[in-house]
Design a protein around this nucleic acid. Structure first.
Lengths: 408, 408
DNA sequence: CCAGTTACGTCAATCTCTGAAACAAATCCC
DNA sequence: GGGATTTGTTTCAGAGATTGACGTAACTGG
């Protein structure tokens, strides 16, 4: 029986030589182990799942064990007779990823190990001034996180910073209106301070990665809509995240007229369904205050609990706008699930019906294959966690790099 | 120097054995030859491009020559001294693909060879009645095309039918309002009559494939918007077509109110920018008549030439609507080129400015990386040609299947 | 306690590519 | 015409990887 995994097949570009073959099969085996997640997988099962023979699996497993990328669990058998199978699973020590995130009023840092488990999660107030101060704060947090990781036998192999906005070359923040950043080379700045490779990624994309890990392999085709001020959509399609996906959902047109968006156009989704816009539409009460800035979703939730009728109307309007934008997305991309992430996770119960209504109206496909809309379990922390996962994911995708490090 | 190719890397899912290695390197070499297109490539260049050694290339090339998948061109050298290099290029006989398309009032069939050259293109009136009559007409055309291909030493290895609408399992037409079809298993029906594997694909997707071939390897990230009544968008991203891309652009919302669309909602792009809608908006003159049905784009063009002011207004409105929808798409997917295909190719000069205007307004990215909009060279025939290409593409992607056929 | 069963490890055989070298072929340049 | 140059073919030994067969380990059930 083939076990489900996130992605089995390594991509081999270029010629394969004998050693390339070896590397390929090692990656294949490793991913199978990673895909097994909670349930440790035995050597025989690996042989069946990968199509390799048992001797080959033995050799590869030995190599992975020597590198301490995987560990042998105690003998665990499902029932039959015979020698019990030895479970193999990812090591909980060794390589780790460090994620950083900048939210409205708070910085966060997160360390995950190879298994995707969160081992460290820390928050700090966000320094108000320009990029320099923020990057300094992030670097300090990152330093603390690296030592905390080392104390648990974890080696941080890479850092990823999540930012709300488009990114160029995995390093330069093109434009992040929520931060007031424009063409900031955050990758180089942090990399210089930390002495580690730093990638910069879009927060919605990274949030989708975290939700994907958390949800398990059944979730193969979905978007995760998230954001506080900007609205982004992370995509997983056919069990993979897509290079070339921009996901700037916030600037999809959902209505005519209205106030101009930061982008200059009118009718952008953000102006109807951004959390700040929802607050403003509900009567502007408290918008701009510190506690609202810290978490506008909580502020909205509080208003709802207080029974404010205007916030319900604003949420309804936001749901319609989100529904229209998501309908456009779902018409273009064949996903079967929509996760409401970030701040929307908290507000999902007031949004889902309205979104569903628009999807049913505007997406032909819902007639024969329904689209599910549900809150994303990780909520606002998804982006940091996703950033950390993306950093360690490089080892997961190609463990040969980690092996090479040991042979030196 | 590495030559540009559409996609160099074969995707190898599953384990690689020693013989798999051999197959992999053969595919690699074959694709390099296919990618060279017009300019034949020599064995030495292949060695340099693939990273394999010359003896290995010699062996692989011998195998491909024996299978008659490639041919040696006359000695062609670029200038230096020494023995002239022998150019290798794809054979113009051997495997071929057959494409079928159903347009408003006309059926078409097309045969392309391995090189992607159109070797046969035929049109026929579309029988009016239900799916059965249409499929019968297609089967008859397909039969003629297969014999015509055989006369030129071509073996049709697969058939693809293009339909305007979503398709399930490469075989069943989910819904094609323009044809009045719903859940028609066209794949099984045609396959039964022809005795060949028949796949069914979305016309916009296949049109994008054809335009991609025609444009050459520089075009790596684009959408091709096309359609007569329905509007679809085919996508090529990062040099590959995407499984999971639906591309139903026609039902993206671009305005509020207006008449209800066939999908039930209001404000769909199709209602503003469908060719029939443009005609209707211009004063409904001749809409529904046979010559308009045969080619609404030609009818529109004729009105423009006649200096009708209302058609210009309708085109301007259509351009704005297209611009809004395409802006939404471009916000989600990082493409740098938009091709106006199908009927829009003919009308491009009256549409491009309006589309550009909306893109500049609504797509953040245009500030630093401009998006080009231009007519698609193949126009309305792109879908049939793309269908034929997609059929022969299976051999191009994995020539080992064709080799195995010979060894039997 | 022993047979049956399943899991895992070891060994020679086989396959493919590499690298070097020698060689043949075809052209350019002097 | 002869030398230089580049391309393509052939040969050989060698390395690396997988396979297939056999042997060993460990547990269940009677």
């Amino acid at each position: 029986m083939t076990r489900p995994v996130h992605r089995v097949a390594p991509r081999t570009d270029g010629p394969i030589r004998q050693d390339g073959l070896r590397a390929h099969n090692l990656v294949l085996t490793f991913r199978q182990i990673a895909g097994a997640r909670d349930a440790p997988i035995s050597r025989s099962e690996l042989a069946a799942a990968t199509g390799l023979t048992r001797p080959t699996i033995t050799r590869i497993v030995d190599e992975l064990l020597a590198a301490e990328l995987i560990v042998e669990a105690g003998p665990s058998r499902s029932g039959g007779s015979g020698r019990p199978r030895v479970g193999l699973s990812l090591a909980r020590s060794g390589p780790a990823g460090l994620g950083l995130d900048i939210r409205a009023d708070v910085l966060s840092a997160c360390v995950v190990d190879l298994t995707g488990t969160v081992r460290h999660l820390e928050f700090a107030d966000r320094p108000g001034a320009g990029p320099e101060a923020v990057l300094g704060g992030l670097a300090a947090m990152a330093g603390r996180a690296v030592t905390a990781a080392a104390a648990e036998n974890l080696t941080v192999v890479g850092v990823t910073l999540a930012v709300p906005g488009p990114v160029r070359d995995d390093a330069v923040v093109r434009l992040a209106p929520a931060l007031g950043w424009r063409d900031v080379n955050a990758g180089a700045a942090l990399s210089g301070r930390l002495g580690l490779p730093v990638h910069v990624g879009n927060d919605a994309r990274l949030a989708a990665l975290a939700e994907w890990y958390a949800a398990g392999p059944e979730l193969r085709d979905f978007v995760c809509v998230s954001g506080e001020f900007d609205i982004g959509a992370g995509l997983v399609l056919d069990g993979a995240q897509l290079d070339g996906w921009a996901g700037e959902l916030g600037h999809v047109m959902v209505g005519s007229g209205g106030p101009p968006c930061v982008c200059g156009a009118t009718g952008c989704l953000q102006c109807y369904a951004g959390l700040e816009s929802i607050l403003a539409a509900s009567g502007d009460r408290g918008a701009g205050s510190p506690e609202v800035a810290r978490s506008p979703a909580v502020a909205i939730d509080a208003l709802v609990s207080a029974g404010d009728p205007r916030i319900l109307a604003a949420l309804d309007e936001a749901a319609t706008a989100l529904g229209i934008a998501i309908a456009g997305l779902v018409n273009l991309v064949r996903v079967d699930t929509v996760l409401l992430g970030g701040g929307y996770a908290l507000l999902a119960s007031w949004l889902i019906d309205g979104i569903h209504r628009e999807l049913r109206r505007r997406v032909l496909r819902t007639g024969w294959s329904p689209v599910e809309v549900r809150p994303a379990p990780l909520g606002p922390d998804a982006a940091v966690i996703g950033a950390a996962l993306s950093a360690v994911d490089r080892v997961r995708r190609d463990p040969n790099g980690w092996l090479a490090r040991l042979h030196r």
